[in-house]
Every structure is written in C-alpha cells, then in structure tokens.
C-alpha cells in the first residue's frame, strides 16, 4: 500500500492506482471532474484534460514537484505523493481554460438537447467555466448521419472523449463505429452507412458525457427534470435487468442503466430492456432513485413516501 495526500487528506491505496482513483476513495469536493475517464472501461482517460492536478511532491524518494499539471486519471500514485487539486488556484484556472476549450466547438443548444439536466459538460461549465465566450469564429459543424434506429448521433455536440468507442470495443463484438479523420475534422462515424445494432450498443448513450449520443426512442419526448427516476428490475436473459425507469405519471418514458455518483454505470443493460420494454407491466418497480438535491432532476422528486416521514400519516 502507498500513502498519498490529496488536498491535505491522507489515504492509503494499492500501488498502481491513479490519483483520480485515490481521490474518489476520499470522496467529496476534492475529486477532480472527469469527462473522458470511465472506471469500468479499460484504456479510457487522458483525453479531456479536465482532471488536471498539481503534484506538489512526487514521492518520498524524489520530493521535487512535477514540472507541469498532470492528468489525474492516468498518473499512478507513488508513496508519499502530495497532490493539490482545489487548494491550488493554478489548477482551478487551468481547469477553467480546459472548459473554455471544450466549449469552443460545442453548439450550446442545451434548450434543444435531450441531455440537458444530466449533462456532465453542463455541470462542468456551471462549476468551472465562465458564463461568457471569447470565441468569435464559426463553430465546427458536421453533416447529420444516421447510425441506426435506436441511437441518435449529434456530432456537433461531441467532445471526442472516446468513451463510446471503448464501450463498443469492450462490451460488444465487432465495433462498427469509431473516430474518423484527424484533428479539427475528427468525428464519430460508421464510415460506410453502417447501422449500430449490437444488443449492448445502447450503453453508448449512457457513457456519453454530453448529448452527442441520445436515445432515439426518447427523442424530444420530455425533459429529464419532468420525469421521475425509479429503480426497477426485470428478468432478462442477456443482462442483469437492473435499470432506472424514467416515469411520467404511470408511463415509462425511457429506461437507462443505474448510474453512480460519478455518472458511471455499474451494470450495463441490453437494448431489449432499454428500448423495447416501456410498459409498466414489464418492470418490477422498487422505488424512487436517489437524486442529489443539487440536481435539477430532484424537482418534484420525492424519495420517501408519505408514511416514511413522521407526522404525515398515522403510524400503524
């Protein structure tokens, strides 16, 4: 076990784990945000640069600080390492600049986008970015392409985090989409009008941190903050069947996998559960899902029934 200190909090982690993993073990405000790193996808991380931190002391043997800010998702810890995240104003300034870079080509069509309200880039920009843009040139745009009956691709919104590529590689056999071209022209595509139809391909929607990949069966149906997320399960042959159903009254508007506090899916679900089972009779509803009070989704979302709150109902 190696000892690391992040923003003054000390923790012991396994050798080989990264600074971000150590920070997540501590939890709270000191966890660097991550747009491309996804703990369950091998090889992810190191692309978006939002998790930059300052290493004030490299290790016990070599106490010099690292010369530049490092990406915490891909830098392994060393014994005696001291890391500064929110205590270092330079880190926050760099993160603000990274957010500005990510937003340069982002269309900011949040009023139209289905991801609004659960978008990581929205959260990040709200917390770290500034509300004004300095960019005056025309934003990068792409022609619309159809990638299948279930998934809607909006390349304009993509931040090229590669999460969906790793998902298709590691969850499905035979990936049919990828990142084409280079640099400014890099785009997610299927090259020759191919449709993504693998049974686990719907998970690309959940791993996408922005609204580049959205659910076609839920397109423009409602906004996430009008829906009520409920934990539900069903017997499924190809996945765990544990999901979150988003309800409006007694109707199921969409089905997603259950996400943890970092927006990561613990158990991926199959396309049958996600796109085809939208009848309340298909699911056993367990109860309301926990939503942070800071999220807009917690609007009109009650996690306790009237009987659970003292004084609202007569105790039996």
């Amino acid at each position: 076990m190696v000892k690391v200190k992040i923003d003054g909090f000390e923790i012991e982690v396994e050798p080989g784990s990264t600074i971000l993993q150590a920070a997540r073990k501590i939890g709270g405000d000191i966890v660097p945000p991550a747009m491309c790193y996804y703990s369950s996808l091998k090889g992810s991380g190191g692309k978006c640069r939002t998790c930059l931190v300052k290493v004030a002391k490299s290790s016990e043997k070599d106490p010099r600080p690292m010369p530049k800010l490092v990406a915490s998702c891909s830098t392994p810890v060393q014994d005696g390492m001291e890391v500064e995240n929110i205590t270092n104003p330079g880190v926050l300034e760099a993160r603000k600049a990274v957010v500005e870079f990510l937003l340069i080509n982002h269309p900011l069509d949040c009023p139209v986008c289905d991801q609004a309200g659960e978008c990581k880039l929205q959260d990040l920009a709200f917390e770290h970015g500034s509300s004004l843009t300095r960019y005056e040139e025309e934003r990068r745009t792409f022609d619309k392409i159809d990638i299948g009956p279930y998934i809607q691709l909006h390349m304009n919104r993509c931040i090229l985090c590669y999460r969906c590529v790793y998902t298709a590689d590691q969850l499905t056999d035979g990936r049919v989409h990828g990142v084409l071209n280079r640099g400014d022209a890099a785009e997610i595509g299927t090259y020759i009008e191919n449709s993504i139809e693998n049974d686990m391909s719907g998970n690309m929607i959940d791993v996408c941190p922005v609204g580049a990949l959205t659910d076609k069966t839920f397109r423009f149906k409602s906004r996430v903050w009008f829906l009520n997320p409920m934990d539900a399960h069903r017997d499924c042959d190809c996945c765990s069947g544990k999901a979150t159903v988003w309800m409006f009254g007694n109707e199921i508007y969409r089905v997603t996998a259950r996400k943890d506090e970092y927006g990561e899916v613990a158990e991926f679900i199959c396309n049958t559960c996600r796109f085809e089972k939208k009848d309340t009779a298909d699911w056993v509803i367990e109860g309301p899902r926990h939503i942070e009070r800071t999220s807009v989704i917690s609007q009109n979302h009650y996690e306790k029934t009237a009987g659970d709150v003292p004084g609202t109902m007569q105790d039996n």
Binding site: C110, P111, A116, F220, K221, S222, R223, W225, F226, V296
Partner: peptide, 22 residues
Amino acid sequence: CTACGLCAVACPAEAISMVAAE
C-alpha cells in the same frame, strides 16, 4: 420557442405545460 421546459420548471405556480415535437 423550442420547448426547452425552462419556463415550466421555473414557474412557481406550475401553470405551464408543453409537449415538444421534432
């Protein structure tokens, strides 16, 4: 209007409702 729903979520009286379409 693009039916973003922000007016409905801001409305303290819950007077606004909408259905979006493509």
